[in-house]
């Protein structure tokens, strides 16, 4: 099967999954108690006003009509109007995507850069101080809850030492880069980096710790394989045996986990975003849940679902590339 056929087929499967997500998210509203009208209408609203509001929001229609309308809107990129802000939900959600993506990607990149070499060192220097340090770090990293780490970092680094800023960042990556390119001004990018460090560390620690473990056990497994001995027997330097031969095969399962984790970072950064008041999807969702702003909640969840599906397709394609024994079937 060619790569394109594979992508098309996986794309169609992905669409099916997204449809499932949409349906579930839509039904969520009917499964939770309380009507959005309670939040939108004034406390002393008359029954007539409440009925009027419900009619305006389209809540008086039967459920299947609402569903059809919602689906029809989605196809055109319309996620409805925010109950509270009175603006299209899609616009609000899209404006929040870059911040979340930047955080997720930064955390992942930091995690990959730190964890894979650490895992390899840990495996090649088994039962030496490096190994003990790495395994201790990964145990601590896996057992530390995100929100606690975030709060501690803020307390120590921002409040205590006063080195890095704590909350809402002034500028996104793209405007910062524009500023850098067109005006040779580094203020933007520096601010961006300063605001990114703590959230990325918070979000990336668990991730790093987990990949260190995976890399270590994978490498130990691969280094015991006969082909490693054969590679040494033909005179390859140890660095090449480790990084070219063993690591390549270790990466195959790690890529899968990386992909799944990146997906969950996009959705699961909610707590970290909230702790750092990060202007991303996570904060948006929490704010929206507080006021039952359903179009925003639904839209954001759907966007996260789509992100997950896309990342999985990319991972599968990459997997086939790394592992020749898997054909794209």
């Amino acid at each position: 099967m060619s790569q394109y056929q594979f992508l098309i087929r996986r794309g169609l499967q992905g669409l099916l999954v997204v449809w499932g997500v949409v349906t579930l998210v839509f039904l969520l509203r009917f499964m939770t108690p309380g009507s959005p009208v309670d939040f939108v209408a004034p406390l002393d609203a008359s029954p007539e006003l409440r009925a009027q509001i419900a009619r305006n929001l389209g809540l008086d229609q039967p459920i299947y009509v609402q569903y059809a309308q919602y689906l029809g809107g989605l196809i055109q990129g319309d996620m409805g109007y925010s109950y509270i802000r009175g603006r299209p939900a899609s616009g609000i959600i899209v404006s929040r995507i870059p911040a979340t993506l930047e955080l997720a990607v930064a955390a992942t990149v930091v995690a990959i850069i730190c964890s894979i070499p650490l895992g390899v060192l840990s495996a090649t220097r088994r039962h030496q101080p490096t190994d003990y340090a790495a395994t201790t770090f990964s145990l601590v990293g896996i057992s530390t809850p995100n929100f606690w780490l975030g709060i501690m970092l803020i307390m120590v680094v921002s409040v205590g030492l006063g080195i890095l800023p704590t909350s809402r960042r002034p500028i996104g990556l793209i405007p910062a880069i524009e500023l850098l390119i067109f005006q040779f001004e580094t203020v933007g990018i520096r601010a961006w980096i300063a605001h990114m460090i703590l959230p990325a560390v918070t979000l990336g620690t668990y991730f790093t710790a987990m990949i260190v473990r995976l890399t270590r056990s994978g490498m130990l497994d691969q280094l015991g394989q006969p082909y490693v001995e054969a590679a040494r027997a033909k005179g390859l330097p140890e660095t090449l045996v480790t990084y070219k031969h063993a690591l390549r095969n270790t990466m195959i399962p790690i890529i899968t986990v990386l992909g799944l984790q990146l997906g969950s970072l996009i959705g699961g950064a909610v707590i970290t975003e909230f702790v750092f008041n990060w202007p991303g999807l996570g904060t948006l969702i929490i704010d929206a849940i507080r006021v039952r702003d359903w179009p925003i909640i639904q839209g954001a969840l759907i966007v996260i679902g789509i992100g997950f599906v896309v990342i999985n397709i990319v991972v599968d394609a990459l997997y086939a590339r790394l592992n020749p024994r898997v054909s794209l079937e």
């Binding site: 006969p226 054969a230 590679a231 195959i252 592992n323 020749p324 024994r325």
Partner: peptide, 13 residues
């Protein structure tokens, strides 16, 4: 080596 199947790296030609 004894077993050619495991003595070659499976992910390189």
């Amino acid at each position: 080596f004894q077993d050619p199947m495991s003595s070659f790296n499976p992910s390189l030609t």
